[in-house]
Design a protein around this nucleic acid. Structure first.
Lengths: 263, 263
DNA sequence: ACTGTCGACTTGTATATACAAGTGCAAAGA
DNA sequence: TCTTTGCACTTGTATATACAAGTCGACAGT
């Protein structure tokens, strides 16, 4: 009994080794873990209104039964929903749906595209991705290695319902990113591009937020007058690729759209 | 065997009932769970520099051994450190210390006091806590029940190294908060006061961030001139007490101190 | 009609265990 | 010498289980 099992294990390992060593690395996108799949499902059900604000989600045990999982796994999924602000939990009561986190969730992990929704967002490339040198990035120190390879630099203006709201400057170390500068970013998420073509996932990061007044250039892009208050966010994005971070500076006109997030 | 246990269980329940019903509710502060204790320990070790940026934390198994816990419990503690940005983890490698999240972590869950550190922060009460009526709170809808009981209102100016940086307006539903208005908030954290005296824990919340220009009143408090850009944060704080939220509006002068957070 | 108790639910904490999968080094082999 | 293999480590995912503790409604006793 034990022997058969052992054998199975070994052959699986062998298979994996061949799998990863020879070529089809592109397909190596591992299937998402159970807890993540459940998270996506529940999230969708909340987003499409199947569960409304104030509703109780099925209890953890019910979810276990329905999806053939155990409680720790289910709880893992629910933890993610809590972190995103979709639900809150009360001991003895259940998981209470909070509804969709409103507004522009730029403060959280999502990129601008997914935070706003593609329908209303258009992107205008002001400076096309090109390779430059750099010494620092919006106050964040960069490594010597990053310096030596230079960075991919670009500027984009993002409009919500045709009103200019964000101005992004992005700097990405030019490391193992073949053909990046030739890829189109028009109406496409940068995060998605990195994930799909380069297997780079943004895992988190650091941000600095401050209020400034618009300079000449920003005034023009946003079509606002002198002394108009602007919110600036300097961000460092950390990824699943060790020691690979990239940086962006975002100017936001918050007159019509304020930044909303959970904490 | 089962009987004895059953009896023990019942008597414990009886004890708890007396315990909570009669008076010494003050002491009812349940001892923190293991994973939280470990989190606090590790956090302290990072904050005091025992573990420096770039170091590896002891492996999960080592922590298990050292603290007599199991891996899920240890991982629970580490998850919290990841959320706070103290560490990041790499599969196959370990938990890498990121050092202390720098700057003013007001964007995260902590209150202003703990985010900045008591040494440098002083608080000036501008309007002492008093009971008022309210219809809404910084754009957030409030319940009919909250409306009927009124709110505890206060305004505070917070200075870092004697420079005015934050101006807080806080509104708390006047629900089961005996003697609140007579308690001193001078150099004391509001969050701590709520936790210690009323067993109210802030669990999370929602915030809206925008850039504005200082009005007359704010100009005076911050000693800045006309058109000075100011960052405004409107927050709704949710607590462990069901249906109990409170609200604050924070004006920040970000000329010298920008808001830093992780995402 | 009111009060208090109890039980059946919920989520919270913790243990024990197993295997998957990434990392890095050392030893074996060319 | 260089490459590859394999092993010993790490964290990641998942199961199964147990009991603690908060919530709420039904029901019995007053």
């Amino acid at each position: 009994m034990i022997l058969t099992f052992r054998k199975q294990y070994l052959s699986l390992q062998l298979y994996l080794q061949i799998y990863t060593n020879y070529s089809f690395r592109q397909m190596a996108l591992k299937e998402a873990p159970q807890y993540r799949k459940l998270y996506e499902k529940l999230r969708k059900l909340i987003e499409d209104g199947t569960y409304k604000r104030g509703d109780l989600l099925p209890s953890e045990n019910e979810l276990c039964g329905a999806h053939h999982l155990t409680r720790p796994t289910v709880r893992n999924a629910l933890d993610m929903l809590v972190n995103d602000g979709f639900i809150i939990r009360h001991q003895g009561k259940g998981s209470i749906v909070q509804g969709q986190p409103k507004g522009i969730g730029i403060l959280s992990l999502s990129g601008t595209t997914s935070a706003i929704g593609q329908e209303n967002l258009t992107t205008r490339i002001i400076i096309k991705p090109c390779v430059r040198s750099w010494e620092q990035a919006f106050g964040y120190e960069i490594s010597d290695n990053d310096k030596s390879v230079g960075c991919i630099y670009m500027e984009r203006l993002r409009l919500i319902n045709d009103v200019p709201v964000f101005y992004d400057i992005t700097m990405i170390p030019n490391l193992n990113l073949p053909r990046f500068t030739s890829r189109s970013l028009k109406n496409k998420s940068l995060f998605e591009l990195l994930r799909k073509h380069y297997q780079i996932q943004v895992k988190g990061g650091e941000q600095k937020i401050l209020a400034i007044t618009a300079d000449k250039r920003i005034q023009q892009h946003f079509k606002v007058k002198n002394n108009h208050p602007i919110l600036r966010v300097d961000r460092k994005m950390e990824t699943n690729r060790p020691n690979f971070s990239f940086y962006s500076q975002i100017y936001c006109n918050t007159s019509d759209y304020s930044l909303i997030g959970r904490f």
